[in-house]
Nucleic acid binder design. Structure first.
Length: 426
RNA sequence: GGUGAAGUGGGUGAGUGGCUGAAACCACCGGUUUGCUAAACCGGCGUACUCUUAACGGGGUACCGCGGGUUCGAAUCCCGCCUUCACCGCCA
């Protein structure tokens, strides 16, 4: 959520930013609406405070009078306070309503894109920040998509998942299951080497947590909801891990950077997504992912973003997968993000690029909701949050299977072999 | 799941209707003293909103788990919820 003070002081930049996100003239009016609501809120707040101050002072006098034994005078003043309470009560109701409307409106405003974010509507307008330098692998006509290889080599079974849960819940088996475990361990080890502290967070979160990182209210339909206990299944480790720092005031600027990593399964409803492009592991309801999360000083968050990009690149290189990096355009940028790099891996049998990582700087958009601040001489300021997938497993497995298929079986990249204990799935 | 107890500032913890934004101690920061360190002494030390000021600052309001209520006045009384602890039950 954007800070009101920021909107007030940078109205033009906010409007420009929303245009990059393809807001129409009409939609842009929300900015004026927010400011008007905030004006009203301030006036009401001041009114209310004045009434309460008056009440407090009269109440104090009443107490003094009672002590002095001047009962009649004291009782006479009671009516004054009662009248005051009535007006104060009305103002308070009005204030509450205004605050609620303001909050509802403010929540509709997405983050302001970083100046480097290209304009555009769809994923076709994303900018290629780094292309794959060499030729893309060519497998020939008899190459199989990963879902066919899965059956051939018993890597995972989607139909079995349907029986147990429903569509989009793969059951990994044998060497496939072992490959999942190997990738998780590999990614976590790499993150640890890069200085990230490993955490194992809850997989179900409450409403405040889902709100803190911006999944609520914007993406409610994306999450599974356990209604009886009012808990949400996490769509990414970002949610519980970043919320570790909800309502925290970091004592000293030298405590930055805070670097956390965690592996979790991720649950996504992906309602209504069916068809050829979501076959196999391309889009599933449950997948494993290792996430890296950083809490940074505002002056250094973009440096941190670059570091995270490098980290993810390193992983893909060790996995020997052809990849490219996209800078998302305004239309494709997530609601909460100021700048996002997507990583795509080329899956040679499908001849498609598959998104396997998304690395974003949220600046203060999340920390404003999280109330995540750090102390400075001039008072408390909002920190910056960032996160990135490092990496999401399902699609990595899809492209590993496709790109590394040989007549003998599926070849395991060197970097993984010490984790899998085998170099071929056959 | 049942029964009982408790939730106060970074921590321990006092406070049962007005003099309490909240004692005291610890931690932390600044200073004095001091070969160094330590000790001792002095001072400072919550958050949010708001008004005012060029700024330093100053004023006001709210916050003692959360939400409601009683009262002229609530950390303190009442109701609901949440959490924690103890015991019992169940259990990977």
């Amino acid at each position: 959520m954007l800070e009101i003070s920021y909107i007030r002081e940078n109205r033009e930049r906010v409007l420009e930013g929303l245009k990059v996100r393809n807001f129409s003239e009409e939609e842009l009016e929300i900015v004026e609406k927010v400011i008007a609501l905030d004006d009203k809120r301030k006036t009401l707040q001041t009114d209310l405070d004045n009434k309460l101050a008056e009440r407090n002072s009269i109440s104090k006098s009443i107490g003094d009078l009672f002590k002095q034994g001047k009962k009649d005078e004291a009782n006479a003043m009671r009516q004054q306070v009662n009248d005051l309470k009535d007006t104060a009560g009305q103002i308070e109701e009005d204030l509450k309503a205004t605050k609620a409307t303001l909050a509802e409106t403010l929540v509709q405003l997405p983050n302001i894109p970083h100046p480097s974010v290209p304009a555009g509507n769809t994923d076709e307008d994303n900018e290629i920040a780094k292309d794959w330098p060499g030729a893309l692998p060519e497998l020939g006509e008899d190459a199989k998509p990963h879902w066919e290889l899965a059956t051939q080599y018993n890597v995972f079974d989607l139909e079995l998942g349907v029986k147990i849960a429903g569509s989009g819940f793969p059951v990994f088996r044998g060497k496939g299951a072992r490959l999942v475990r190997a990738l998780i361990a590999f990614f976590l080890d790499e993150a640890a080497r890069a200085g990230y502290e490993e955490v194992i967070p809850p997989l179900l979160v409450n409403e405040s947590t889902a709100y803190g990182t911006g999944q609520l209210p914007d993406k409610e339909g994306q999450m599974y909801h356990a209604e009886k206990d009012d808990l949400y299944l996490i769509p990414t480790a970002e949610v519980p891990v970043t919320n570790i720092y909800r309502d925290v005031i970091i004592k000293d600027e030298s405590d930055f950077p805070i670097k956390l990593t965690g592996h979790t399964p991720c649950f996504r409803r992906e309602a209504g997504s069916y068809g050829a492009h979501v076959r196999g592991l391309n889009r599933v309801h449950q997948f494993d992912k290792v996430e890296i999360v950083r809490i940074e000083h505002p002056d250094r968050s973009y440096e941190a973003l670059d570091e995270m990009v490098k980290h993810v690149e390193g992983l893909l290189e060790k996995l020997e997968l052809p990849y490219r990096i996209l800078r998302l355009c305004g239309g494709d940028l997530g609601f909460t993000s100021a700048l996002t790099y997507d990583f795509e891996v080329f899956s040679a049998a499908q001849k498609r690029w598959l998104e396997v990582s998304s690395v974003s700087n949220f600046e203060t958009f999340q920390t404003n909701r999280l109330k995540l601040r750090y102390k400075t001489e001039q008072g408390n300021r909002l920190a910056h949050t960032l996160n990135g997938s490092a990496l999401a497993l399902a699609r990595i497995i899809a492209s590993l299977m496709e790109n590394n298929q040989t007549p003998e079986g599926i070849r395991i990249p060197k970097a993984l072999q010490s984790y899998t204990g085998f170099d071929l799935i056959d």
